[in-house]
């Protein structure tokens, strides 16, 4: 006997779809991290996991626990809130660091430094 058996069929289907979609987006993001060619292309890939990947997984978790416990449990959205606030900051800092390092090396692939930056 499993606690998941207590889920009504509609909730079980919903949870399954959400969990699978969330994992799929995170997976595709990591595939991109592996397959894309240079750093500036790769930096786009993990955003898939932090936006829709996390979103669907949180939706699955909220559905599952709210139905199982018979009351709304939605403090998982705090993960979403923190992640939406922090991901842009980390990515921007990382890109700026990469740009700085490339310019230090005199790379021709990145734009030259603007006067007021």
């Amino acid at each position: 006997m499993n606690h998941l058996d207590a889920l009504p069929p509609w909730a079980a289907i919903l949870v399954a779809v959400f969990v699978l979609l969330g994992a799929l987006f995170a997976f595709i993001g990591s595939v991109g991290l592996l397959r894309l060619e240079n750093f500036y292309q790769r930096v786009h890939a993990p955003t898939l996991g932090t936006t829709l990947g996390t979103f669907f997984m949180l939706a699955g978790s909220i559905t599952c626990f709210s139905v199982l416990h018979g009351r709304p449990i939605f403090y998982e959205i705090l993960i979403g809130v923190f992640l939406t606030l922090t991901t842009p900051i980390t990515l921007m800092l990382l890109v700026r660091a990469a740009l700085y390092r490339d310019r230090e090396e005199g790379s021709q692939d990145v734009p030259r430094k603007l006067p007021g930056e």
Binding site: G22, A26, S30, P46, G49, T50, G53, T54, L83
Partner: peptide, 12 residues
């Protein structure tokens, strides 16, 4: 960047 993606995957 890969370490950051690893964190997020672990969290999910």
């Amino acid at each position: 960047l890969a370490l950051d993606a690893l964190y997020v995957n672990a969290m999910i």
